[in-house]
Design a protein around this nucleic acid. Structure first.
Length: 592
RNA sequence: GGUCGCGUAGCUCAGCUGGAUAGAGCAUCUGCCUUCUAAGCAGACGGUCGAAGGUUCGAAUCCUUCCGCGAUCACCA
């Protein structure tokens, strides 16, 4: 907003000239639609510096600006609001200045610090579900937004590939699997393994019930169920490096990875670097020992190591067990340090993890700060709300989860149904149609999830999520497709300088104003780690365009200069939609 | 109980670095396809911004208290 800077100076100048007073700052806001003007100066705050009637002050400043600032064509004052009409020349100059840029709104790559973005980080004992989808979409999008804002970004995840929960599905497979494989069963690898995780739980529950019947206390039964003891034994064997167990672990994990790969590909997310918990779970212990020497941590009588955070308003927290083994926190400390060692230019990390872990990350970041790492100041927990269903919470053990693969497929099918109903795809091959259904279905899903503020919980209403009208992904994609249709029909879509004497339609001016906001929206989204801001922006832009499209003829315009300007303007809107959607990981169709 | 987050139209959400009569979409109703894609546009209906105090020329926005919902307070991850 260079204009705003100029105006700020000029308003100060005006106050100096008229009232001989120094204004500390000037407050601007976009002019409300119901008043004439483009940008508004709020007069009220000036009353602290300049005594008098706001209307009179506004009028005097307005007159000064009209006189002394080329870009200001007219003004009016309503109550304490000085509404300024910005000249067409200004907007046309702006348009000319960005018209040749293919990435207007994006900052120069790698002009800012490198940041690592962690997201997904699944357990390898069951398929991904709707909760992971929100996580993946958020993490991916924030990574892309940070890139567009000028950061170098490394996308990563830490795969929870070890532990008791992994052993549970391994054990169940060993017991009941009869050698079943993804090939033999036709099941996707992650779903196959998930099946045995459920099987374990079923047996476990049955055993508990059995023991309770025999008169055991429930709590005790939960601890002593034979199958659980077996799983714990398996974990010990794994940690001891037992060959057979390790082999089984490798095999089943590889099934899961193949399955995840497909889901990630379908979702359109990717990673630059993978970390595996089986490699990192021992990390951090040395750091804890160092911290112990430095007096940051302290040892209890039983030998366990703790940090006292009561001065920071938190509790005491364990960082190493009495037997010297690592806890979750130890591992996370180690992993963070490992990452900075692996990528020396990192100055900041974003952890995309649900809000049930708010406390954990608060503690983790605090510990890293106390350990003296400079980059610890730049850690951010991208904490997001849970995804609930109209029927309530999702619970994997109760089978009320929405499976990621199913959901994606569902959205594609809905896109197909609607597309067929509308029947606008004559001339498209089956291949092209399929690709389009994917684009639309996925666009609907991604937009539906990303448009809401990350920290709020989402109520996932299946019916509403497949609605393709109004504030939805397909609505925005549709606008893009419409513009492409115009561009196909226009014989000349070359970029050419627009004459600044061109008369601007009100809708054109509104569009230019909205386009102009894009760069600051990108920065704002990056600063707030919020794809929702991009989603809301592109929705506003599209609404504005559709209104323009309805009221103003583009190809039908007889004045050639105007016609060509409108074509170029439409093209720029389409580009901006595409650039914005790229930040959300949503693709854009040529037709629909 | 302590801590953190959330509470805006029937529903789903914007707006929250304080500013004009609180905005969209869905749903309901009314118009608009012989003109660039009607997955669209234009309009109507719909609000004690959870409640009460406070700060301010001005509060949905900031502060306090209360109410409701959720998360968390594990030698699980």
């Amino acid at each position: 907003m260079e204009l705003q800077l100029v105006l700020e100076q000029k308003v100060k100048e005006a106050v100096k000239a008229v009232y001989d007073a120094e204004l500390p700052s000037v407050e601007f806001q976009p002019t409300r639609k119901d008043f004439e003007g483009d940008i508004t100066v709020v007069v009220f705050p000036m009353l602290r510096t300049v005594k008098g009637n706001p209307i009179e002050i506004g009028t005097k400043i307005g007159a000064y600006l009209e006189e002394n600032v080329d870009e200001i064509a007219k003004f009016n004052v309503v109550k304490g609001f000085l509404n300024l009409v910005v000249s067409n020349v200004y907007y046309l100059n702006f348009f000319n200045s960005i018209n040749t840029s293919a990435t207007f709104g994006y900052e120069k790559p790698n002009s800012k610090d490198a940041i690592m973005v962690e997201y997904s980080s699944p357990n390898t004992n069951k398929p991904l579900h709707l909760g992971h989808i929100r996580n993946n979409l958020l993490g991916y999008s924030v990574a892309e937004i940070l890139k567009a804002a000028g950061h170098k970004v490394y996308k990563t995840q830490i795969i929870n590939d070890r532990g008791i929960h992994i052993c549970k599905s391994m054990l169940a497979w060993q017991k009941f699997g009869e050698g079943e494989t993804p090939e033999s069963s036709g099941l996707k690898g992650d779903h196959l393994v998930g099946k045995y995780y459920v099987a374990f739980d079923k047996t476990y529950k049955a055993q508990i019930e059995e023991q309770v019947k025999q008169g055991k206390e429930k709590e005790q039964a939960e601890k002593e169920a034979p199958i659980l003891l077996e799983a714990q034994e398996m974990l010990r064997q794994w940690e001891a490096g037992d060959q057979a167990v390790v082999q089984l672990w490798k095999t089943m994990n590889s099934w899961v990875y193949t399955g995840f790969e497909t889901t990630y590909k379908n979702l359109g997310v990717d990673f630059d670097k993978l970390y595996y918990e089986s490699n990192t779970y021992l990390l951090g212990r040395d750091v804890v020992k160092e911290g112990l020497d430095k007096g940051i941590f302290f040892k209890k009588d039983d030998g366990s190591v703790w940090i006292d955070l009561t001065d920071d308003g938190l509790d005491e927290k364990i960082v190493l067990r009495a037997d010297g083994t690592a806890v979750y926190m130890t591992q996370d400390i180690g992993t963070a340090i490992q990452r900075v060692t692996d990528f020396e230019d990192i100055n900041g990390m974003v952890y995309t993890v649900g809000n049930e872990q708010d406390y954990h990350f608060k503690v983790l970041f605090l510990i890293l700060k106390k350990l003296g790492y400079k980059w610890a100041e730049k850690l951010y927990h991208l904490s997001y709300g849970m995804v609930d269903l109209p029927s309530g919470k999702m619970k994997s053990r109760e089978g009320t989860v929405v499976d990621a693969d199913d959901l994606i497929k569902n959205m594609e099918e809905t896109a197909e149904e609607i597309s067929k109903e509308l029947g606008k795809l004559d001339g498209y091959s089956d291949e092209e149609k399929k690709e389009l259904y994917r684009t639309i279905g996925l666009g609907a899903l991604k937009y539906y999830i990303l448009k809401v503020d990350p920290k709020k919980r989402i109520l996932f209403n299946p019916e509403e999520s497949v609605d393709f009208q109004g504030n939805t992904g397909p609505f925005i994609q549709y606008t893009y497709a419409r513009i492409q249709s115009i561009l196909r029909k226009a014989e000349n879509i070359e970029v050419a300088t627009v004459s600044t004497t061109l008369e601007l339609h009100e809708k054109e001016k509104e569009l230019l104003k909205t386009i102009q906001l894009f760069p600051e929206k990108v920065q704002e989204a990056a600063n707030n780690y919020s794809p929702a801001l991009i989603a809301n922006y592109v929705y506003d832009l599209v609404k504005e365009f559709n209104s323009f499209y309805q009221q103003v003829s583009i190809l039908g315009e007889e004045n050639q200069d105007k016609r060509h300007f409108r074509i170029q303007l439409s093209k720029k809107v389409a580009e901006t939609i595409q650039l914005a959607f790229r930040l959300l990981g949503v693709e854009v169709p040529e037709r629909m």
